[in-house]
Design a protein around this nucleic acid. Sequence first.
RNA 1: UGGGGCGUCGCCAAGUGGUAAGGCAGCGGAUUUUGAUUCCGCCAUGCGGAGGUUCGAAUCCUCCCGCCCCAGCCA
Length: 567
Amino acid sequence: MVATDSPTAPIPEPGRDFVRDIVQADLDAGRVAGIVTRFPPEPNGYLHIGHAKSICLNFGIAQEFGGRCHLRFDDTNPVKEEQEFIDSIQQDVRWLGFDWGEHLYYASDYFETLYHWAEHLIRAGLAYVDDTPADEMRAMRGTLTEPGRNAPGRDRSVDENLDLFRRMRAGAFPIGARVLRAKIDMAAGNMNLRDPVLYRILHAAHPRTGTAWCIYPTYDYAHGQSDAIEGITHSICTLEFEDHRPLYDWFIANLPVPAHPHQYEFARLNITYTVLSKRILTTLVREGHVTGWDDPRMPTLAGQRRRGVPAAGLREFVRRVGVARANSVVDLAMYEHAIREVLNAGTQRRMAVLRPLKLVIENWEEGRTETLEAVNNPENPDAGTRPVTFGREIYIERDDFLEHPPSRFHRLSPGREVRLRYAYFVTCRSVVKDSQGEVVELRCTYDPATRGGDSPDGRKVRGTLHWVSAADALPAELRLYNTLFARPDPGAGGDILADLNPASLEVLTGCLVEPALATLPVGEAVQFERQGYFCPDPDSRPDALVFNRTVGLRDSWAKVQAGQKAD
RNA sequence: UGGGGCGUCGCCAAGUGGUAAGGCAGCGGAUUUUGAUUCCGCCAUGCGGAGGUUCGAAUCCUCCCGCCCCAGCCA
């Protein structure tokens, strides 16, 4: 043991979770020589934020303890699995920042071994072929409070079982005609032990094995044995598999497996206003409620990536949430906080006006322009500065002007002076309205002595506004996203589709952005000052810029306003 | 009167017999050319409830209450 009481000793990692404690204890006790984990997705959909928790846990533990983590596709059900998902999952795990090296595996790689082990169980009298129809089998399984009944074929001879099972493999029977079952205990309190199905007949082509098989192992039969084959030491999964652990252990104990892995369960992630269920996400995509798996409103990694969420933000979020065994629902605000934290530090600032209002500076000569210097990132001086053009006509945010300002409004109003960021102080002299009485233009004057935004006489101004120059601003479409669901607990009312938020997407056209934004690569995050974090969408073209709002800035003024309205 | 889990601040979450970490949210205040960021302060005499053991209990015992998972030839 190393002494840790030295004042200069590094402080041990705080907030370790129970899984890491177990791993550490196993290492300390010599129960395992090294750590091997795995992330085992079924390729039947895209990965989402909930998977990110599992990925960070499994790959993170491997990294921290000098072990390795395998990426293994749990591809035991060909009717639901597709190559597209196999590809997207690999892309998403890499994007999240993890590397499985050469340890890419498929449960289907083990089909032959699994098959031989099934015959082993038959020979040991621990498995039998059952031809009970599915609905009858369900009835005979009993209920939560009543034991099940033995199937008629439960006591078939080993030879007959072997013959039947081989004919199942050979394709002698139609879909669903027979299954191979483990002979355990039809009266077990744990339903998973009431003679679970090991193999079912599915005459379906598999993305990897094609038509080589017409019988496929179930999750229960395949998972633990795959772990054993790969030498997984800690098989980490979510709570709903806890009841399966006795079965997991039963297979390991009764089969000639090369290793004895152990399963540990943690609580899955839930987030307010969010659905993390592959089944429902699939429905949203199939029924067209969203534009696809990578719709920026989707909680998929592909969607969040397109929206502009940095992988580091996702990792930070997962780290803050922790790992435990209690079911919980994390506040969406915590996710947004982690994203802002990463984006604030690493993102350049630009100016963009979402809802433009023209502002003309009357004492600025027609045709004259000036180049001013804008800071790229106040959090990082190394990011440098960029030139921005200023002139007689500019655009500001409509929200930044109010003809009759309430108290505490620090922005522009008739007769009031504000600072234009990096530019000058301007004072509103008059307002131009259209026939409807709507404000369409502001007439202002500027103070030449305030160039750059500082007043030599030390006078203060309450507000600083962002702006773009009319001469060179570029038009753009901005897509603002709100929660996909309108209530914090989608589905709690019974119909989850009824909870979809009709205002989840707000498209703003006619926005104006500074010209430096024209060449920003797709997906690269920037902060639009005073507005939020954005990134160019893949739909963006040089002559038709499109930006996604990843997340807005914190807005305490909005809170004040909400408070005022409530009064 | 089936089996398996879980209950610590509004939301996450440490703590495993020695007198309740931290984060998010919220509320004050300072700084600020983003009403952003940053910084400072406040925020559980209390750990689902009731008993009990102990000098001492969120931690041990008993009973009770609540919530979650399981009856796919899904994972």
